[in-house]
Amino acid sequence: MLELKDIQVYYDGIHAIKGVSLTVPQGALITLVGSNGAGKSTLLRTICGLKRPSSGELRFKERNLLDMSVTRIVQMGISMVPEGRQIFPDLTVMENLRLGAFTRTDQDEIARDQERVFSLFPRLKERASQKGGTLSGGEQQMLAIARGLMARPSLLLMDEPSLGLAPILVEEVFRVIWEIHREGVTLLLIEQNAQAALAIADYGYVMESGSIVLQGKGEDLLHDEAVRRAYLGQDIGA
């Protein structure tokens, strides 16, 4: 569904992405793990058109994304839950959700999706008319995910959705990710919580200073010694 071939990106003069190739098949849950500054976020921003690669190929549903505007890419069915949540603090929960569905015109279906995200996150329904900035960190993350779903994406990109959340909320976020996956949405998930991400992913990529250094089935990576040492904080002997 999504295909990256030898993508090169420069960011403020730094060679941030050095020839990344990656495939996200329809319906799959793919994860991209790696340490801070490996270029994971830059890669996601490149997929949705906020960053432009200097070379390489980027295709979604057989269409070339490189000459499409961000708006067009969103209309194609790619939606992102950005790093650090980035909800609109001065807008109400409802308005945040309406922005998620901004490119859509099918009012009835939008209303249906709204009910769907409210059933997924009942807390948001209670706080529908509250400003986004007054929500707790966990609720803001729920809102960011709900907003991403309001676009009714065929591919959802998630950038560190569990970052900075209490363990119980991390669990909740992964439960929701699994739920979304089960409903048939294709997911590309970036996580610093490699353990949890690899455990639910069909396939994983490990990124290091701008390149993919390892890839494989989620489970296999989870048991790979190099991955365990580098990202799961576990010594082989332990």
């Binding site: 708006t71 950005p82 980035q86 309406r98 922005l99 901004f102």
Partner: peptide, 23 residues
């Protein structure tokens, strides 16, 4: 209006607003 919503969103952050599909 939707236009007003887009304007108010853009007041916060351009990139995030673009990710919503707003021009």
């Amino acid at each position: 209006t939707k236009t007003g919503l887009a304007m108010r969103a853009a007041q916060w952050d351009f990139d995030t607003t673009r990710l919503m599909g707003v021009d």
